[in-house]
Structures are given as C-alpha cells and as structure tokens.
Design a protein around this nucleic acid. Structure first.
Length: 267
DNA sequence: CTGGGGACGGGGCCC
DNA sequence: CGGGCCCCGTCCCCA
C-alpha cells in the first residue's frame, strides 16, 4: 500500500504540504511545538514519558535463542496468515433493524411464507432466526433468509462514508475514519497522520530521537518495530523460514523475495 | 540481487 | 468510549 500523504483538508497547511521530508536529521527544539496554538501536536514532554525497557526477548542470559515474542518459535515455519482476525460472531444488537428494509429476495421469501401460512394446511413454523426472530417453516427458508439478509447485515454494520469499508463496531469505524481525516499534523513538515503516536514516531525523524536501543550492538532506532526487525539480524535462526530450503529470513518481505526469486517455484 | 534500515499503516488490547 | 500502546506488516530505499 503506498503511503498516503493526504493532508489537503487542513487549511493552514499550504506550500509546506508537499515539501519533501528533510533528508538529514535536523535538531529541532522540542519547545518549538509549544509555540503553536494548535492542539494537534502533542507536547514532546509527553511523547515518551515511559523509560524504554530493553526488549526482554534478547536477554543476556539467553542470547539469540530465547523464545520469540508472542510465543513464536523461531523455527515454527511460516508466520501466521496475514489476516489475523476473522470477524467476530454477529452480535444481536443490530437485529432490531432488520424488520424495516427487505431485500427483493426476502420479499419473495415472505410471499412464499405467506402462501404456506394457510392456517388450514400448515402447522406452526418451526425455524426461527436467532437474529431477528422471524420464523420459517423450512430450514432452507431460514438458511436463505440468514445468508441474504440477517447475517450479511449483522456481520458489518458501520460503513465508512469516505470509502467502502465496513466495520462491526462504531469504535472501529471511528478509528478507520481517522485514516481519512488525518487529524494529527506535523508542525514541521505538515505531514498528517491518523493517530497521535504515528505523529510522535514521525517527529522523531525530525528530532533524531532514537529511544529504542539494541542490547547487542550500539544501534538505536526511532521505531520499535524497526528494532524488532533489527534484532532478527542478531539471530542465527531467523523468524521466517522457507518451507522448501529451510533458509531463514529476518523479515517476511525477504522470505517473499526469496520465494519469488525461484527457490520455491515448485508449488 | 540480497539484506537491512527507515518510515509508516492499521487492527487489537488495555486502561 | 476514547486514547495510548503494542504488534504485525508493508513499502521504499540504499549499501
């Protein structure tokens, strides 16, 4: 995904919007931010109030072969699939909305049900939707109703007005909308971010602050993820392993490159 | 071409 | 419910 640089809706940003990022670290006084009245920039004093604790994974007592974070085994094969989380089970909170708008298929289903509901011919309907409490005389009828109507609506209920994404919770939607509105703007270069901590990390590119130090060498990083990737370079056995040649890589992207380059052409 | 660093995006979890 | 943080991941660039 190309990195977005969408900041156009912030009126006060003008020519500085599309200035390239400063290529060399520039020491910027943290007090520079304080001089701005806009509240979007967090004060640098609160950027990193917590002292960085060295990564527990790479303790000196267990160099390079300690268990990886999250219970990852260094040679456990491929990392988990990219899609980490499947949508949560449908909640019953949205079921109250299903009686109002009927899809054409549902209307047809309703008519069929109406025909079948002859009090002289049909016994009580036995199959009830657990989401909207509608009842159907046949299991297949209920199944079609749920597939085309109830489940589809309850699975994703909150739609983004800026794109087609939908979310199961309002909180998740609001979080996503921030990726469109980008309310956190860097005062130095005008770049905008969706979350304050993303801006904090970006500001380090200006200040040169690197609070994440490698316990095994003198390198330091502004980004914890980059330190984590760097720690892999100290390991004999890296996290991502080719399932064909057993070669290990520090990053999934390197494993992918390796696979695409021909090692694993045989599927 | 490969490996590594820099920068960043986004979902989930916790408080 | 919102903010902060963590983790996983991607993309780009460079040596």
């Amino acid at each position: 995904m190309p990195s977005s640089f969408v900041v156009g809706f912030h009126r006060f940003l003008s020519a500085s919007l599309f200035l390239p990022l400063l290529s060399s670290p520039v020491i910027v006084s943290p007090y520079l931010y304080e001089s701005y009245p806009m509240p979007v920039i967090p004060q640098p004093e609160i950027l990193s109030s917590r002292a960085y604790s060295p990564i527990a994974v790479w303790t000196s007592a267990a160099p390079f072969h300690a268990p990886l974070p999250n219970g990852l085994s260094p040679l456990s094969g491929y990392p988990p699939p990219l899609g980490r989380v499947s949508p949560p089970p449908p909640s019953d909170t949205s079921s109250k909305d299903h009686s109002g708008s009927e899809s054409p298929v549902s209307d047809e289903e309703e008519r069929l049900q109406s025909k079948l509901s002859d009090p002289h011919a049909i016994e009580a309907e036995k199959f009830q939707c657990n989401l909207c409490s509608k009842t159907y005389s046949t299991f297949s009828g209920l199944g079609k109703h749920k597939q085309l109507h109830c489940d589809a609506q309850s699975r994703k209920s909150f739609s983004c007005k800026y794109c087609d994404k939908e979310y199961v919770s309002l909180g998740a939607l609001k979080m996503h909308i921030r990726t469109h509105t980008l309310p956190c703007v860097c005062k130095i270069c005008g770049k905008a971010f969706s979350r304050p901590w993303l801006l904090q990390g970006h500001i380090r590119t200006h200040t040169g602050e690197k609070p994440f130090s490698c316990p095994h060498c003198s390198r330091a990083f502004a980004d914890r993820s980059n330190l984590r990737a760097h720690l892999q370079t100290h390991s004999d056995v890296k996290k991502y392993q080719c399932k064909n040649c057993s070669k290990t890589f520090s990053r999934m992207s390197l494993l992918h490159k390796h696979e695409e380059s021909g090692c694993c052409v045989a599927h």
